[in-house]
Design a protein around this nucleic acid. Structure first.
Lengths: 220, 220
DNA sequence: CGACACATTGAAACACTTCAAAGCGTGTGG
DNA sequence: CCACACGCTTTGAAGTGTTTCAATGTGTCG
């Protein structure tokens, strides 16, 4: 099921302290993950919490009929993998070759029990995630295809800190499954944006935002 | 903007201790809210945290073009209103006449700072919400109208503990804005379910689940 | 009982999907 | 170093589920 054979965090000796959040420094193993490698699977025990150091991660779920849904992307600096139950309800995969800091969940729990600051920091992370999810529900529930794609471009631009050139780590397929669209619709929408002078597409994964104001106006 | 004039929690004297979660007992004011009354608005300061005692609450957001999105319903026993930022990004309204326990956010924060159990309890609430949101994103991103309506019926049945008769507190419009559909599609889908013998509709807000297995099979 | 909001039903329109084919880029082997 | 092959992306045309527009039905509250 999982590929943990190559990532046996319990044995790995070189332990660094990872700063997951202010006041949350826990012993961490830094593990490399290859493009498309699974970090955890649905139904895996939730034994670890992760932080992206480099690369990018997608959180996915497969429906019975094979359709896939991407519920989130995680970029460098972001924490993922803390779920409530004993088992993961979603799976996580590296989108590109990535370096991930891995911490035992128990270590986080201990920290939070001993330090109110740590507790508050983790709380703040959760609550930030919740806001992002609510915004995303709004997108999925009420926005048009053009608005969804514009939102993604703006989100990538903001979260990577890129002023106007976005280097998208994910494929059209990842984008589509995140936006609740098909790859064709994503592609067509990007082409239309290019024709309208809103963006330029020097390569498929590099997107130059030529008219941020218009993209923002189209969103919402 | 807000209707707080009639709900000045800072003055109200009869303070009871509300059990928000295990180990989270904070001084609370119990306030009645009428159907459609606003509990807080977008941009209001996030000074309070709330718990539904009776009735039901919807969390909404209005887009520029007037379209509305309902990101969540909250039923008796559920906590809502803790958002990360200093201002609410969404608004909350009573769906029917409701009784709500209101606690100052600072009181919760103090408790959490002093007691790891309280912190863990609040954490667990947040994480439960997150799971629900992820499931809902899946619904909005990848499910058909019939699947969405079936999901709502099952969700109401589970969350109210009703075995087979669901008393829906919300209108078709609320359902539609929650499911990312129109009221017409919700109505048509319920009618179709009735024709198919999956449910019965003695009144518009009372829904008898006649074939739970089929509804569950249709979902996912 | 009448009025008003809410819900249902029907028909036409439309946005997005599905199915299909062609283009493009990258890596590999001859 | 070129040629081919494979995967991903783009583009086109037809199909479909949901929306939109419009009208009728139904329950509830003064």
């Amino acid at each position: 099921m999982t590929l943990l054979a190559t990532h046996d965090y319990t044995i790995a000796p070189p332990q660094n302290a990872a700063v997951f959040a202010p006041h949350v420094n826990a012993p961490a193993v830094v593990a490399p993950y290859a493009k498309d490698e699974e970090i955890y699977a649905e139904e895996d025990p939730t034994r670890y919490v992760y932080k992206v150091l480099s690369g990018a991660v997608r959180i996915t779920r497969i429906l019975d009929d094979g359709r896939r849904h991407v519920s989130a992307f995680h970029l460098p600096g972001e924490v993922f993998g803390y779920e409530p139950d004993a088992l993961h309800a979603f799976s996580a995969e590296a989108i590109v070759d990535s370096r991930i800091a891995v911490v035992r969940r128990a270590a986080i729990d201990d920290l939070v029990d001993r330090s109110p600051e740590a507790g508050r920091a983790m709380w703040s992370l959760a609550v930030q995630d919740m806001r992002r999810m609510r915004e995303h529900m709004l997108l999925l529930g009420r926005k048009s295809a053009a608005q969804r794609v514009a939102s993604l471009l703006l989100e990538l631009s903001e979260r990577t800190g890129a002023r106007d050139t976005v280097q998208a780590p994910m494929s059209r397929s990842d984008m589509a499954d995140y936006l609740g669209l098909t790859i064709e619709t994503v592609s067509r929408t990007l082409s239309q944006f290019e024709r309208d002078g809103l963006i330029a597409l020097p390569t498929t994964r590099r997107i130059v935002l030529k008219n941020l104001a218009a993209l923002k106006a189209m969103d919402r």
